[in-house]
């Protein structure tokens, strides 16, 4: 098992290298340079010598290819570089924001699974009934509503009908003040979770419909098992595999930061960090963040592979001799 996961992880190395090359050169194609982005209008006041000194300090005077290899060498030693905008090492900037994104992603997935799987199972069990129809309508709306619309609507409903605004302000971590942290994250999490619950609902429903028609479900029923046992123990467990894949993909994206939702609710997560880094041409930060996002994808993929074996013992990555 470990051997298989290690092999899978190794197979991702070329992808990660590709991501780093793509980003490294793409960000250098943005008009303007990082010195101007760093100093703004004051960059115009720099003398040639001062500018050259700054470029030398940040290694920007070397050819792009050389800069790439220097950067790659440093990354392999755990040094992602220095963010010119934040005045901090890139890794600490990322690690300061990651808990926000991780917490938001986990909350969103939990909300999506709770809503989506409940509707999905009910829709499949009561196939072609009014419950199924309501479930499918819900899924259609969820898939069609962009999260910035849901976010804006949530803010509207809260302010007009309840006279409150989502708690933005300075972000407070879960360990500092759990209640305030929850107040800050619950609405963005509902926004993201609602949109995702529609996909979960559709996937659960179609997987359950397939599984409920299988022979072993009929056998379970004919043994006299109660319907809820048949559904929860026999059918749902097997219907979970495509849902796990879906959650894996979504988690990968959510850990890459939900740019728009973080922007609407002014949350200091990875998405906004990446967005600002790109627009401010903070080269080292863009490279670091994107590599971090791609790495999240890899880790999530490996976790999904592992979860498959827990759900279905028939899936084994150990070679049988």
């Amino acid at each position: 098992m470990l051997r298989y996961l290690a092999q899978r992880a190794l197979a991702f190395v070329p992808t990660l290298l590709g991501v780093s090359i793509l980003i490294f050169f793409a960000i250098r194609m943005v008009p303007g340079d990082s010195i101007v982005a760093m100093l703004g209008t004051e960059a115009g006041m720099l003398s040639e010598a001062q500018r050259a000194a700054l470029e030398r300090y940040f290694g920007l005077d070397k050819p792009a290819i050389e800069q790439y290899f220097v950067w790659l060498g440093n990354v392999l030693q755990g040094d992602l570089g220095y963010s010119v905008r934040h005045g901090e090492p890139v890794l600490s900037v990322i690690l300061a924001r990651f808990p926000v994104t991780l917490e938001l992603a986990l909350m969103a997935v939990i909300i999506a699974l709770a809503i989506g799987m409940t509707f999905g199972v009910l829709s499949a069990v009561f196939h072609n009934s009014i419950i199924d129809l309501i479930g499918q309508l819900f899924a259609l709306i969820g898939l069609a509503a962009p999260n910035f619309l849901i976010g804006t609507l949530i803010i509207y409903v809260l302010s007009v009908y309840f006279g409150i605004l989502p708690n933005s302000g300075d972000y407070v971590s879960l360990t500092e003040d759990p209640r305030r942290n929850l107040e800050q994250l619950i609405f963005p999490a509902i926004t993201l979770g609602f949109a995702f619950s529609a996909s979960v609902m559709r996937m659960t429903r179609s997987a359950m419909l397939e599984v409920l028609g299988e022979d072993y479900v009929r056998t379970a029923r004919s043994k006299g098992l109660r319907e809820h046992v048949v559904v929860s123990r026999h059918a749902l467990r097997n219907a979970l595999i495509p849902v796990v894949t879906l959650v894996g993909v979504e988690m990968g994206y959510l850990l890459g930061g939900a740019v728009i939702v973080e922007e609407i609710f002014t949350l200091p997560g990875i998405g906004r960090l990446a967005y600002n880094a790109i627009s401010q041409r903070d080269y080292a930060l863009v490279q670091g963040v994107t590599l971090f996002i791609a790495l999240n994808f890899v880790v999530i993929n490996l976790i999904v592979d592992f979860v498959y074996t827990l759900l279905d013992p028939r899936i084994s990555y150990v070679k049988h001799r």
Binding site: P14, V19, Y253, G257, Y275, I278
Partner: peptide, 24 residues
Amino acid sequence: MRIMDVFFAFPAILLALLVVVVLG
């Protein structure tokens, strides 16, 4: 296909953002 995988490793909106910032 590995090159295509590189594009999949980004959230769509972030990749689009990067391209828009590069192109204007």
